[in-house]
Structure formats: C-alpha cells, structure tokens
C-alpha cells in the first residue's frame, strides 16, 4: 500500500501568519519594550532623575522641585500616555476591522471633527477656558457625531460600513468648515484651539483621567467581546452571517467601543493622529489578520509609540517641549515608510 503524504516546504509563499509561538514571543518583546519606556518616561526629561529618586518621590512625598516635577507632571503624563495610547491603538484596530480597510483611522467616523467642533464652541461661544471644562464637551461632541454617523449609515437592513464612512467624511467636512469659520472670526477661540489641536499628554492632571477610565474599560470589554465577530466579518458579510454572527449587533457594539475609546482619548489629550492608523496596520503586517492578536499588539505598541514620542518631545528642545501629537508623526512615519519599502511588505 502506498501512502501519499502531502508535504509542504516550511516557510513557503502561502504562509502569511507566523506561528503562534513567534507571535507570543513578539508580544512579550513588545511588553518588555513598553515597560522600559514607562520607566524612561518617568525618569527622562529636561532634568533626568534616577529611578531611585522617582521611587522616593512616590513613597516619601516631600516638597522639592524634582519631587513636584515627578508627582505633578512626569507620573501623570506617563499614565495618561499609557491610557490614551492604548485607547488609540485599540480604536484604530477596531475601525480597520469594521470597515475592512487597513488604511482607515477613526477620523473617518467624524470623531476628531466632532470633538474639535464641540471644543471650539465651548471655547468660542461659551467661554470655557479650562481643560477640565471642555474635556467633557469633547467627549460629548464625539458621541453626538458618532450617533449621527450611525444613524445616517443605517439602512433598513442594518448598518453599512460604506455608508458610515461616507457619512463620517461628510459630517467631518461640514464640522471642520464650521469650526474654521468660528475660529477665524474669534481670535481668542483661535488661540485656544491652536494649543488644543496640537495634541498633548502634558498638563493633564490625573483627576481628569479617573472619571473617564471606567468608560474606557467598558469599551475595552466591548472590543474583546466582538473580536470573534470581527474575525468572521473580515471574510465578508455573508460568510459571517453563515457562521452565526449577528452583524447588526456586532457593528453597533464596535462603533460604540470606537467612540468611547477614540472620544475619550481625544477628550483627554486633544487630537492625536497617526497612532491609530499606523500601529494596527503595522501589527497586521507582523501577526496576520487575526483580530485578537492585532488587538494585543496594538494595545502594547500604541502606548509605546506615544510614550517614545513624548520622551523625544521633552528631550529635543529642552527646557521646552514639543507636544506629543506633533512628534508621533515624525517617529511613526519614517518607521512606516521604511517598512513599506522592505520588499517583503506586500499589498493590503
């Protein structure tokens, strides 16, 4: 009796996803890098402090310039960076999965434009001056716009990603025009918006984060719950429906998660672009199309990118700083361009 064995040469062209063990190794390496960056973020800056000094500042609080710098600024910005980065990474992965477009970012749902418009109105028309004041406006703006986009993007048969994207771009355009009109005719609003639209994790006291944190946790839970559905939906609506995925519900939950995460991140730190686009996209190159792994990598790599940018922004023009929203593009874009030029990086 002859047995025919089907063999394939390991590493042949058909294999696109690395084996699970390599993915796990990669994830552990990414976590390690994040931990290193967390330490660096608290110690490095215009004045570099030793980890021992940081520990001392936390455990034995006393009055001192370095102590204040650590407790009032370094620590909060590290935590904010971690939280905001994770939120941006996961929301970016979600929108890319939802629209089946690896080049999507949350801006196409109008989240950024909604937040900006709400903050412009708060600052220009209502005279709110304090971040703790207009933070909630930003969150509310993002939520209202997303609900609008969801509504516009629904048909009788449920939500359609294409319609939602169109609606998002449409609403973004109108709101951006309205924001521009407002700021150009109101110099004080213009000034405030200049500062806000740079996107920064500095100067955000921890008291701002605590109220938002539960919402972000809820959103993460939602994201986890739709992971399996998103995996199925990547193969097409019909295949997903055949596998028992409830398309309408999954889409609504996904959009809810995206809004809570991206809205929260923008409300705290202002608009920070590029992180949500680049990190899930690059993660997909490394781990393949499995949504769970993409989330895992995004939730670790995005804060790393954000914290690394923040550290760089602090060091480059010390004692001044460059806001993190400006540096992320300079750190991320060369990496992205370098990766795309590698021969192995193939199409979408």
């Amino acid at each position: 009796m002859t047995t025919t064995t089907i063999t394939g040469t390991p590493g042949s062209g058909a294999a696109t996803a690395p084996e699970p063990s390599r993915r796990m190794l990669g994830l552990l390496a990414a976590v390690a890098a994040l931990l290193v960056l967390l330490v660096l973020s608290v110690t490095v800056g215009g004045t570099t402090m030793s980890p021992a000094a940081v520990w001392d500042a936390l455990v034995n609080p006393s009055d001192g310039f370095d102590q204040f710098a650590i407790r009032d600024f370094r620590l909060p910005r590290t935590i904010v960076g971690l939280v905001v980065g994770a939120a941006l990474g996961v929301s970016g992965a979600l929108i890319q999965a939802l629209t089946r477009n690896p080049l999507a970012d949350t801006g196409i749902l109008g989240v950024g434009a909604g937040s900006s418009f709400a903050v412009t109105v708060a600052v220009g028309v209502l005279g709110v001056r304090d971040i703790s004041g207009y933070m909630w406006f930003a969150y509310a703006g993002a939520l209202v716009v997303t609900v609008m986009v969801l509504a516009l993007g629904s048909t009788r048969r449920g939500q359609s990603p294409v319609l939602m994207v169109l609606a998002g771009v449409c609403v973004s355009a109108v709101l951006t025009g309205a924001s521009s009109a407002l700021t150009l005719t109101n110099p004080e609003a213009f000034d405030q918006m200049r500062g806000w639209s740079a996107g920064s994790i500095m100067g955000r006291p921890l008291e701002l984060i605590w109220p938002v944190l539960p919402l972000l946790v809820v959103a993460l839970v939602l994201a986890l719950s739709v992971t399996a559905s998103l995996n199925a939906m990547a193969l097409g609506d019909d295949v997903a429906a055949a596998q028992g995925v409830r398309l309408g519900l999954s889409r609504v939950l996904t959009v809810a998660a995206i809004t809570l995460l991206a809205g929260g991140a923008t409300a705290i730190a202002g608009p920070i672009g590029f992180v949500g686009l680049m990190v899930p996209h690059v993660a997909r190159w490394f781990v393949g199309p499995h949504q769970g792994w993409i989330f895992a990598y995004s939730i670790v790599l995005a804060p790393s990118l954000l914290l690394a940018s923040d550290i760089l922004g602090r060091v480059v023009i010390a004692p001044g700083e460059i806001p993190v929203g400006i540096v992320t593009a300079f750190v991320g874009a060369p990496v992205l361009i370098g990766l795309v030029r590698r021969k192995k990086a193939s199409g979408l």
Binding site: L152, G153, T155, L163, L166, V169, C170, V174, G177
Partner: peptide
Amino acid sequence: IITLIIGGCYLGYLLFLEARRR
C-alpha cells in the same frame, strides 16, 4: 470654508443616493 461645507453637503447627497439604492 464655503467649498468645504459644499463638499460635505455633496457627500451627504451621495450618501442619500447610496442609501436609497440599498
């Protein structure tokens, strides 16, 4: 700014057409 708003309305119109088609 006006062309930006017009563009937004135009895209809204496209949306309407798409939705009607579906």
